[in-house]
Nucleic acid binder design. Structure first.
Length: 221
DNA sequence: GCGACAG
DNA sequence: ATCTTGTCGC
């Protein structure tokens, strides 16, 4: 797929903040999807050579049967450090390289990390979604910001994630008895719809099949 | 000023 | 993210 460059990549946190504040105004948290959903994708990053090289992986699966239909890998020098709140500047450049190689355009992309559950409401899922203009969902394995009530051990149960009196996402149990996932709108999708699709992409394990496949491609030898 | 802190 | 073996539990 073709990808439009909507901004240059910053070198400093100050520049990054400016970009986040600008792009945040372009994020849509209402459902604006191409249904029925036929393809869902997972995107993730892995590192080699002591972290100096980034390896991005994208896995496109059919929906709702979740069969792998296409995958791609892309390598590039890591150009931004990991700083909480600025993950997208470190990971998106390589992810775009991998997405450009994809022929099957996904209807939804599940990203590793937060969506609007971010200090400036522009986690990696929102950032990527605005750039490629495809619905995205933030699927994080741990908390960045926000608070929530305890939730039942049963699969499917969830609690709203709150930050500054605002619901920014959901803490979702994708499998009975295991640590929950932090779900939030990335772009062009509502929280409830995001929760629905995440559960439908998670038939057996804690992580959605999409991210499991992408994870494996990005970290495997 | 003191902690918290996606991957 | 990554470095790393065995081990507990369904």
């Amino acid at each position: 797929m073709k990808i439009q460059q909507i901004h240059s990549w910053p070198t400093t946190v100050e520049e990054a903040i400016t970009i986040q504040e600008t792009l945040q105004n372009q994020v849509i948290t209402k459902d604006l999807l191409q249904e029925p959903i036929k393809y869902v994708a997972g995107a993730d990053l892995g590192f080699l050579e002591d972290g100096t090289i980034s390896r991005a992986a994208v896995a496109v699966l059919s929906f709702p049967d979740l069969q792998v239909v296409e995958t791609s890998l892309a390598y590039r020098p890591t150009s931004f450090p990991y700083i909480p709140g600025f993950l997208s500047f470190r990971e998106i450049p390589a992810l775009l390289d991998a997405l450009e190689k994809i022929q099957t355009i996904p209807d939804i992309i599940l990203c590793d990390g937060q969506g609007i559950a971010h200090p400036r409401r522009l986690g990696i899922a929102c950032h990527l979604g605005v750039i490629v203009d495809i619905p995205t969902i933030g699927v994080a394995k741990s908390l960045l910001i926000g608070k929530h009530e305890e939730l039942p051990e049963t699969k499917g149960s969830w609690q709203p994630l709150i930050h500054k009196k605002e619901t920014i996402g959901a803490v979702l149990r994708t499998r009975t008895g295991v640590k929950p996932l932090y779900i939030s709108s990335g772009h062009r999708i509502s929280l409830s719809t995001a929760i629905d699709y995440v559960l439908r992409c998670t038939p057996k394990y804690r992580l959605p099949e999409t991210t499991r496949i992408a994870d494996k491609l990005a970290s495997d030898r």
